[in-house]
Design a protein around this nucleic acid. Structure first.
Length: 601
RNA sequence: GCGCCCGUAGCUCAGUCGGAUAGAGCGUCGGCCUUCUAAGCCGAAUGUCGCAGGUUCGAUUCCUGCCGGGCGCGCCA
């Protein structure tokens, strides 16, 4: 990952290498490392790779190279240590390469690649409640959209609502048959969640009857049979577009969708396109007919599917049930075709939990067999589940944290514990806005900071601590930096322009403290981290880098040797530039994760 | 049974082209607020990198086998 600083460092090293050395500037840059102890240097160049080509032991190469690098523009010091050359940056020159693009605020990303990428995420079911488990997907998908945009792609953020299927008929059964007229009135707000509770009640009741029926309870068995007949009836009525039932579906579906829209708004998530399962249902069945006729799909036990030998433990991928109705898989094929044909995407990303890994392997293999070359550019981003300290989330057992409670509790905690002291001093609007940003930052960062293949145990109490490696910690560093900049401004000092490179180097040569050195190098690491996170579809990489940057910023701001307002001359100006760069970089980096930093907190 | 994921400090986790004495947060213990926000900073202690082999100058990292945990495996989504 290239930055102006790393490029110049690599070019300097490459130029100093023996002509026999098989490394160009790019290879050198890829090898550049950070020494284990910063007292050794700011960068390190390992010489092991050169040993064979030069037929010289690494320590000898390192010693020779160190001698030749001692007096370059970018390095203040070069010392050999074993097979490594440890390099201390000439801080003014280094800062002049790092800070200019940051002091004025990093640019919002613009698409500069020809590739068009769609990220499909969130995919909630209507008629069900939205809970913390859904938040991981939402945060992950949103962050990937932002990261890919930062990497220059044109990205379509897409959602895919599960608005058909058995869960709908269960919910409607409860709503229509089991509620009294008085009960059948949704609350003024939170209708989606209310509907989710109905679904949950229905599901629990059916499970309970099923359990009882297994133990020989004939009443339960009869009730179960009756209920199943009714849910099937509802399902068929919906499939037949029977007007009265369709009207009920549309009404209740809208309650869910409205609430989802509200949730996304609160989360600061925007979709460019909304898909619905109900739109791809029939198209999916037509695809099954089409490719069955072409001989790509085949029948088995009355069902239709495709045989993907590559998935050894389960080669048969079912696409149409014996009763002729569609499946999740059927719709995914139709959806993929729409993505390719109507949205003309080159790359397709699916953010779906890891339990679906086999499903997506099958989907992509099937698309390939159907002739879609884009199948090679389909990626499933699997992630592990969110659990609660009390165990896996299970709606049935009531072991869930619903979105509304999550939001309210987080916001209330932030206000009570951190912002109450500003009452009267800040407007209520600012307190509310700040609490929103902090609560959301805590949730998003918590969901993103862990690698996707690690399970997350969501412990509300722990996340509310807001200490250590958390979103609010990074937001706090940002706010403090902003506070210094306000004081600087009050003192009548302007953030210096660094547009002129040689002037900038001269000014920034005033930086000398270890905390300043650490901050400059941490700033240099931000952009590569964003690119790496985007390329590997792993937002956690950026979280780690932001945490390091926030720590470096806090250390700088806490150090008595790095006062900004109380210093003078070029030292003050250089530090102003450094703080401005840090604030802007933190804000920008958080922004790539969908997290805002409050102006003050 | 087959497939995927996980196993690193008391706890939660980084460590993804194999490289220096294996890191961070929390917790514990001890310091730092008349000085730019103490939601902060500094210091200390803590390890059989699940186990056993193999490849290598060098393995937490790559390969093989095993142990432990999670998830998935034809008419749910």
């Amino acid at each position: 990952m290239t930055t102006p600083l790393r490029r110049q460092a690599a070019e300097t090293i490459a130029a100093a290498l023996d002509h026999d050395a098989p490394l160009g500037a790019q290879e050198v840059m890829d090898l550049l490392a950070i020494p284990p102890d910063r007292s050794l240097g700011d960068l390190a160049f390992p010489c092991f790779k050169l040993a064979k080509a030069l037929r010289t032991p690494p320590p000898k190469i390192a010693a020779d190279l160190a001698g030749r690098l001692a007096h370059s523009a970018i390095f203040a010091e070069a010392t050999a240590a074993g097979g490594y050359v440890n390099l201390r940056l000439a801080l003014g020159a280094a800062a002049a390469l790092v800070l200019p693009e940051m002091v004025d605020g990093l640019p919002e990303p613009t698409a500069n690649r020809s590739e068009r990428v769609m990220v499909e995420y969130s995919q909630p079911n209507t008629h069900k409640a939205f809970h913390v488990g859904h938040m991981r997907n939402l945060c992950l998908g949103d962050a990937l959209v932002r990261l890919l945009r930062a990497d220059g792609y044109e990205v379509i953020a897409a959602n895919y609502f599960g608005d058909v299927g058995a869960h709908i008929s269960k919910c409607l059964w409860w709503y229509l048959d089991r509620l009294t007229d008085a009960e059948r009135v949704p609350p003024a707000s939170g209708r989606g969640e209310w509907l989710g509770e109905l679904y949950s009640s229905a599901s629990n009741q059916l499970d309970a009857w099923e359990e009882a029926a297994k133990t020989g309870d004939e009443t339960a068995a009869a009730q179960l049979a009756q209920a199943r007949a009714r849910t099937t009836e509802i399902l068929l009525a919906l499939e037949a577009r029977e007007p009265a039932m369709t009207a009920e579906w549309q009404k209740t579906r809208a309650w869910s969708l409205d609430e989802f829209a509200e949730i996304y708004h609160w989360c600061g998530v925007q979709f460019d396109h909304l898909f619905y399962e109900s739109e791809v249902d029939e198209a999916g069945l037509r695809i099954v007919e089409e490719y069955l006729a072409k001989g790509v799909f085949s029948e088995s036990d009355g069902a239709v599917g495709v045989i993907n030998e590559e998935v050894k433990h389960m080669p048969f991928f079912m696409l149409r049930k014996r009763d002729g109705t569609s499946l999740y898989s059927t719709k995914d094929l139709a959806l993929a075709r729409r993505k390719f044909d109507e949205h003309r995407i080159d790359r397709s990303i699916y953010v779906v939990d890891s339990r679906q890994s086999d499903h997506f392997r099958h989907v992509f293999l099937t698309l390939k067999k159907m002739g879609f070359t884009q199948a090679d550019a389909c990626h499933h981003v699997p992630y592990e589940m969110v659990e609660l300290p009390s165990g896996p989330m299970a709606g049935r057992k009531g072991n869930v944290v619903l979105f509304r409670a999550l939001r309210e509790n987080m916001v209330a905690h932030v206000v009570d514990n951190y912002l109450a002291k500003y009452r009267g001093e800040w407007s209520d609007a600012e307190i509310g806005r700040c609490a929103h940003q902090l609560a959301l930052g805590a949730i998003k960062y918590g969901m993103l900071a862990r690698d996707v293949n690690q399970k997350i145990v969501f412990d509300m109490a722990a996340w509310l601590e807001l200490e250590g490696n958390t979103g609010p910690y990074i937001q706090y560093a940002t706010a403090r930096a902003g506070s210094i900049l306000r004081k600087v401004d009050e003192a009548g000092v302007k953030v210096p322009s660094l547009a002129d490179r040689s002037h900038a180097a001269e000014l920034l040569a005033a930086l000398a403290e270890p905390e300043e050195r650490e901050l400059v190098t941490a700033l240099d690491g931000l952009r590569p981290a964003v690119i790496q996170a985007a390329r590997s579809l792993r937002p956690s990489l950026l979280c780690s880098e932001l945490f390091e940057l926030a720590k470096a910023t806090n250390r700088f701001m806490t150090s008595k040797n790095c006062r900004v307002v109380q210093s003078d001359g070029n030292v003050r100006l250089a530090r102003v530039a450094l703080v401005a760069a840090a604030a802007s970089a933190l804000r920008w980096g958080l922004g790539r994760l969908g997290i805002e930093a409050p102006a003050r907190m």
